[in-house]
Design a protein around this nucleic acid. Sequence first.
DNA 1: GTCCCCATTGTTAGCGTTGCCAATCGGGGC
DNA 2: GCCCCGATTGGCAACGCTAACAATGGGGAC
Lengths: 347, 347
Amino acid sequence: MSADRDERGSSPDAEARVPVLADVAQLAGVSQQTVSRVVRGSPSVARRTRERVEAAIAEVGYRPNVAARTLVTKRSHRIGVVAANPALYGAAMTLQGIQEAARATGYSVSLVMLPELTTSSVQEALEDLRAQFVDGAIAVVPEDEAQDAVSAVDAAFPCVLAPGLDGAGVADAYWAEVAAARAATEHLLDLGHRTVHHLGGPTDWAESRARSTGWRTALVERMRVVPRPVRGDWSAASGHAALLQLPLEEVTALFAANDAMAVGALSALAGKGLRVPDDVSVVGFDDVPEAAYYAPPLTTVHQDFAEIGRRCVRVLLGRLRDRVVEAGSVSPQLVVRSSTAPPPVLR
Amino acid sequence: MSADRDERGSSPDAEARVPVLADVAQLAGVSQQTVSRVVRGSPSVARRTRERVEAAIAEVGYRPNVAARTLVTKRSHRIGVVAANPALYGAAMTLQGIQEAARATGYSVSLVMLPELTTSSVQEALEDLRAQFVDGAIAVVPEDEAQDAVSAVDAAFPCVLAPGLDGAGVADAYWAEVAAARAATEHLLDLGHRTVHHLGGPTDWAESRARSTGWRTALVERMRVVPRPVRGDWSAASGHAALLQLPLEEVTALFAANDAMAVGALSALAGKGLRVPDDVSVVGFDDVPEAAYYAPPLTTVHQDFAEIGRRCVRVLLGRLRDRVVEAGSVSPQLVVRSSTAPPPVLR
DNA sequence: GTCCCCATTGTTAGCGTTGCCAATCGGGGC
DNA sequence: GCCCCGATTGGCAACGCTAACAATGGGGAC
């Protein structure tokens, strides 16, 4: 054994080998275990020893082998993320927040992006991730599909849903969105509109349902007519198409479930010769960075997606330690710009 | 040993343990090695044996332990990606393409997103990824920072730069962008504009330089005045600000290095009372999904970012096998919409 | 002075998989 | 009928690390 180690240490191409614990131990004149303790920051190492080992580590350029560590500890310190279309601003920023928070706590992130979203594809992605040995996963996908998929995977594999809409955080995050949508609708009502039409998102997304609920609540509470909503798939193209299904002669205010659809609506409105906000007021949701530069600058609801991502990580890491962490909620804020105004006196 | 195995197999909570090769082997009545061969699809296993083993695998729900496999093979079948701001449409879609191609070839993806881009942060991310034991990495970041960082990491760690602008693919991809930018500029010239102003991106991005080069080339070739370009940071806000630095009284045509900056410019132009395309024509670059719905619909250059991502994966995987794979190039295409028109006869 | 305890360090087993080499078995060639 | 061969299969030793326990040594309590 010792001969073996010697041979390693003195072989001509010793430089070429990736250094391992044993190399550091030999150089520092201690056991592997002690080096391991230093690497992991164990307190029970004498200062002198620690310094000597650290010097040896630096000298040989040692880096722990995560595969070996994972094999024995059964913890990879990696979390998985299943995401939908990255062109969705919200999803992209949430991912950013997740990544940032994970990295800050010493976790790395494995990503699976799904071109097509179905319960089975989400489930498959989750299983894949699990096979990759990630410690847990976060799903940034429509709630319905995700919920089914999450419940289908083994309970031993911790998963949290993206907007923190599940479990402990459900109430908070969901109701915060509802409240924001309601505020957006009330803003239009306050301007004097008799009612507000709605351009909703896909119904299998919890975010979408929350926004529609907030809209409806505001109208009902003020005893206004609740027009039949039209729906899109979050894209500008779908927003354009959906808007054209509305009875334009009676629309004076529109609440779109996200900014891209609002842009599509703006375009369709322009195509019909209707001016915004003179003839029709429009409110979006999300506050993408371009929102302030649309024509007209879009009144919308600002969301801190990165923060949502960070909270998901907190919840997940908590669960990994068998602790329940409250996700809490980030209140989306209405940002009033120029796409909303009092209704035309007469049409 | 055998007693040990028996104990495992018959202990009351056998179900709770994650099954390993030995469990399958025992159930199928073969050696671990044979099970391993079946799992890896080795041809030298008799059909009958294979079937028996496969049944056993299914019965116990065996999944290979990637950590153990990685430890011995020194291959994780995981690639790393360093990305910049995910709010950039191009970066997000490239990431999507990378993920898709990697997954299709049995690789998974570890992601690091950098809030701030510097050579050292990119380098650190690369080192991190390497410590994560990824087989190689793709950097979707500004070329200058990335290039320095990539050359700083060990040569044994294969890295490819995002747009495939490095190494073999450099010429192709770079010149394809140049050509597209040139075509965009020529489109404006063909409409009758005497020259074209330019709203460029950050100069440390190769994409940005390629687009500026294409613009300049077109002007020089037709012996037009080359106005001093202004630059932004890809964001709509920066586009808005940069546009205001231009001598608006002489601008009739503008080529922006991406769509977001074009939107910012559109907004600034409107603020100055200039109509698009009547007074000023604007061309963008990227063709984000909303581009067709801006006011006016934006003439821009369509890019297939996902394909770029896929090619990066191909190049990287090739390099992992010591093969040089040509990245080839995807030609961006000019999409003419309504933000471009002949110049006003007189101002 | 003796004993015990704590702080520190070392030793010994694996973790679950694959690589290498040896062993076994049924046939075909002569 | 005997030997050699190819097709299968098994045994054993790593891979690099950590958990659990053992060992060592010096200082303080009595």
